[in-house]
């Protein structure tokens, strides 16, 4: 009853058009968000664009140079390695833990929540400083392994939220009990029942981690630096050498972020639409 009323009372004759203040605020927002990005895209294919309103000409020269840059493939590869390794470790550490806490150890939920919010309260530079101070001995000192540990900590909340939401949504407790009553052990329950059901959550968590780690600069530059150069490090290098090539790198970086976001949306639309619903409700 209440539901049908709320849809009814949205009078179709009223407010089909946004108010002018809404148009103003939203246009301002769109300009702020899109002008820097679009300009970078255009700049990366412009021959020269510092004397005129529109570029003087267009070229793919900077992409050629970007792809030809020594280190280009290496940094791309390193970024991929870092992202995938982080996702792997996150999955191994976080998914079983979240499942465990939800079904067997509800009392640890507050502790888990605190541990998951903690990374927000630690500036990355501080985490980097703490890690290089403590692990100042080989083989860990300033190693990619140490970096992966740091990046997992920093990206933990991104994996946690979708996984935790998914586990809550499928009511893991009941599924586990059902599985156990049919004779499955903990690992069988996790592998055969829980994981297939929370796969959309795991996927969007992994994609979120991917997009944050792929663009990660601070921890990488401060913990390992030039020894394990990733894509963002190369980009910073080029902002000081050649702006045009740097813009081509930026475009690659933006494009990856867009693509991953679209993937996340797509994955989200397959799974539960809980989050978007809360925003949609008026």
């Amino acid at each position: 009853m209440a539901k049908s009323r709320s849809t009814q009372s949205r009078d179709p004759n009223k407010r089909v058009r946004p108010a002018s203040w809404q148009i103003f605020m939203v246009s301002f927002f769109l300009l702020y968000m899109l002008v820097p990005i679009i300009s970078t895209y255009v700049f990366s294919v412009a021959t020269r664009w510092d004397r005129t309103i529109l570029p003087e000409g267009y070229t793919l020269e900077f992409y050629k140079r970007a792809f030809a840059a020594s280190y280009f493939t290496i940094t791309l590869r390193n970024s991929l390695i870092l992202s995938l390794a982080t996702i792997l470790v996150s999955l191994l550490v976080i998914v079983p833990t979240v499942y465990w806490v939800h079904t067997r150890l509800v009392g640890a939920k507050p502790l888990l929540d605190i541990l998951m919010i903690l990374p927000f309260g630690i500036p990355m530079v501080v985490l980097a400083l703490a890690l290089v101070q403590v692990y100042n001995f080989p083989p860990l000192a300033r190693s990619p392994t140490l970096l992966i540990g740091a990046v997992v900590i920093y990206s933990m909340p991104f994996m946690y939220r979708p996984v935790s939401n998914a586990i809550q949504a499928v009511d893991a407790q009941v599924l586990t009990e059902a599985g156990q009553s049919l004779g499955a052990n903990v690992f069988q329950v996790l592998y055969r029942i829980i994981i297939p059901n929370i796969l959309p959550g795991i996927l969007s968590g992994s994609l979120l981690v991917f997009s944050t780690v792929f663009a990660e600069y601070t921890l990488t530059s401060l913990i390992v630096g030039a020894k394990f150069k990733t894509f963002p490090l190369l980009l910073v290098e080029f902002t000081r050498i050649n702006g045009n090539v740097a813009s081509a790198f930026s475009v690659i970086s933006f494009t990856i972020a867009w693509l991953v976001s679209i993937l996340i949306l797509w994955v989200g639309s397959m799974g539960n639409t809980k989050r978007t619903k809360t925003i949609r409700a008026r």
């Binding site: 990005i37 300009s39 970078t40 944050t212 600069y217 980009l235 790198f249 930026s250 976001s261």
Partner: peptide
């Protein structure tokens, strides 16, 4: 909101 960091900073240099 995830466009922080290096590419974003450079985009602002561009404009």
């Amino acid at each position: 909101t995830n466009f922080a960091g290096v590419p974003l900073a450079f985009a602002f240099v561009v404009i």
